[in-house]
Amino acid sequence: MFGLKSDCILDIPEEYYTLADYESAIARWCPGCGDHGILTSVQRLCSEKQLAPENTVFVSGIGCSSRFPHYMKTYGFHGLHGRALPVACGVKFRRPDLHVFVATGDGDCCSIGTAHWIHAIRYNMNITVLLLDNEIYGLTKGQTSPTSSKGTVSNTNPHGSILPPINPIQTTLGVANASFVAQTVDWNPAHLYATIEAGFEHPGFSFIRILQRCPVFQKELFQPVINNPDEITLLTHKNGIQIDPAVAKMYKHTVDHDPSNLHEARELAENLDRQVIGLLYQDKTKERYDLYGAHNMGITPEEKQKAINLELDKFAV
């Protein structure tokens, strides 16, 4: 009667989650820790995507990064050292309707949890994995991690580490059934958010390695690349991570890399002199184990009865 047409009425969602709905305790990471920025990005993602906190699970193992679930007002699961991915797979296998995130660290994922990591990639369940990689053991106060670069001086390698580091991106790309591999940095919030968002949207195991500053035990590690963004290669492609051109402009060195090109992705990952950020590889068609787990959900009691009779009748005398 006020001249409004019915299709002009705003469609207000029933529930509207704000950032505060995902904020739990005050994060107790050290001042200047890159984890703070990652937490903010994830909370923003949850609110942008309107993920119901009761349908969202954050799983972690042990380490600084694994304090993550304590700071999210969603379901949380602080698991065993190195076992975050099996816990997440367990959740996802039976509750495919939940949004499952994993926050893990370089020690958690690449040292004690390596076996689980490799097989979680192969399972390709619809999980978003954030590898918060600061290349050091922070929680136990400074020991060498598998991703510490050669020569890193730490408490367990006082004369510098001897072995070359594991490259988590290269490893993930080398495992059968890898479906989403991306790398980003904690100090570029636009790229960080866009990458986590792309990982969340991907149907399958999205592995995101986040280079993360540790201001206490690895003070100078990422300072050169922060000061000089030219030392980082930005991957740009229409199927890759889309960020604001104004942000993209700060990276002079870019590569137009098609995320479906596994061979080129491996070559890019192999080059340790230039860290790449962006989407290295994506394939939405890979087999997913969680779909197998879900295929028999919701069958009727009659069907169950029939199935069990079919099997047990074989033992009838």
């Binding site: 106060k141 598998p146 006082p158």
Partner: peptide, 24 residues
């Protein structure tokens, strides 16, 4: 951890071996 860290410092100079394993 401190015991291991002392071993990491001393053992290389004592004809010894310190290895930080991937897990327990």
């Amino acid at each position: 951890t401190e015991g291991a860290e002392l071993m990491a410092k001393l053992l290389p100079d004592l004809d010894g071996v310190f290895i930080q394993a991937v897990s327990e």
